[in-house]
Simulated scan of single mutants.
Amino acid sequence: MPADPGHQKRALRAELRERRRTLTSTERAEASSGLTRNLVELTRSTGARSVSCYLSAPDEPDTRGYLRWTAEHGIRTLLPITRNDGLLDWTVSHGTEETVGLFGLPEPIGELLPPSAIDDVDLILVPAACVDERGVRMGWGKGYFDKMLGSIEKCPPVFAVVFDSEVIDEVPRERHDQPVDGAVTPTRILRFASTPSRS
Score class of each variant (00 low, 15 high):
D181I: 02
G95N: 11
G47H: 13
R20M: 13
W140H: 15
E98P: 00
G95H: 09
T36H: 01
D181S: 13
E97Q: 14
L55D: 00
T187G: 03
I109E: 12
D120H: 13
V92S: 04
P5Q: 11
Y144M: 05
S151E: 13
L42H: 03
R49I: 04
Q178N: 08
A71D: 06
R19E: 14
W90F: 14
G47S: 11
T99D: 14
S32V: 07
S194D: 13
E170Y: 01
S32H: 07
E72G: 09
R13S: 06
L125R: 05
A183Y: 01
L190K: 09
N38Q: 15
D177C: 09
P5A: 11
R188F: 12
T99Y: 02
A14E: 15
A183N: 07
R49L: 11
E15V: 12
G74L: 04
P80M: 05
V51T: 10
L88D: 00
L149P: 00
L105W: 01
E174H: 02
L112Y: 00
G150L: 04
E41Y: 02
A117K: 03
G143V: 12
A14S: 14
D164I: 06
L102C: 02
F192S: 07
G86N: 12
V180C: 07
S52H: 00
H176I: 12
S194K: 14
A14G: 10
V126W: 01
T187W: 01
A3S: 15
P58M: 04
L67A: 07
